[in-house]
Amino acid sequence: MAKKTKDATYNGNMTKAQWTWLLMKRYKIGYFMIAPFMILFFLFTVIPVVASIFVSLTDYNMLQWPNWVGLNNYITLFLDDDLFIIALKNTLLFAVAVGPASYLLSFCVAWFINELSPKMRAFVTLIFYAPSISGGAYTIFSYIFASDSYGLVNGWLLKFGLIDSPILFFQNTKWVMPLCIAIALWMSLGTAFLSFIAGLQGLDRSQFEAAAVDGITNRWQELWYVTLPNMKSQLRFGAVMAITGSFGFGAVVTALAGNPSVEYCAYTIAHHLEEYGGSRMEVGYASAISFVLFLIMVGANMLVQKLLAKVGE
């Protein structure tokens, strides 16, 4: 970071605004450099999120000029839209089941493989990380859980006489949610996982030696008092990735169980958003849905960051 006083000289009489203006002029090249990215970022990310707050208070439908309807969309959403309540419940269930589990799994695996030799570690990393990058790999599960005796699971269950007729896994309300959760977990060791591996590798070894001298006797104490406090910034980043991953769920369900899934048993907010925003073009109403999702995600992030602040205390 260049010192502020290097080129633009501070003169004792300047107001804060004048000083800022001087800095802005001095470093205007900075604005040119961020402009191309920021213009697109605002256009496709910031403005849509902010605009959806306002649009959610109207009945905009892309055809007619929007009318101001106040909180009506939200009232309908919570009091008069049973599907939304189902979607909300399912989304929260997915997030609560997948988010923390994937976070813990990412950390534990990263921690367990930390002391392996570099080659072995690279190999194990690949095995655990591969499902998350192999794109549509989850469609594999449509044969593994195929609904006839040629499906892997049904075939073997029949063979062993555990069932009499094949289970229709993705058409059965009892199975759809648990399977989708398991599959989401299977592919959830992603960016957070890599970040944890790197964070653990970067820890200063001398701290562990000092801790051993100070009387830390087992790996769990070492984990809580030395390892975790030293990688808080990675833990925060990992949490952000885990939360985004666990709420942005829908594609997996659609690919395996269809949309809508049987009796809407795995219907999520993402599906509801697609229905109203994409198919019915009720943009105002869809914006209300997305704003609710926004609030939930912000809330989840605040909660998790608060919990993480307690680590190592």
């Binding site: 920021m38 496709f44 649009v55 942005g248 907010i269 958003l273 914006s287 926004f294």
Partner: peptide, 24 residues
């Protein structure tokens, strides 16, 4: 600006998708 970038990581792409569609 950097804070905005960090915050956008927390929210993911689903939230703004409807308005993004309109803008495009």
């Amino acid at each position: 600006f950097f804070q905005l970038v960090e915050k956008s990581l927390m929210i993911g792409s689903t939230v703004g998708s409807i308005i993004t569609f309109i803008i495009i």
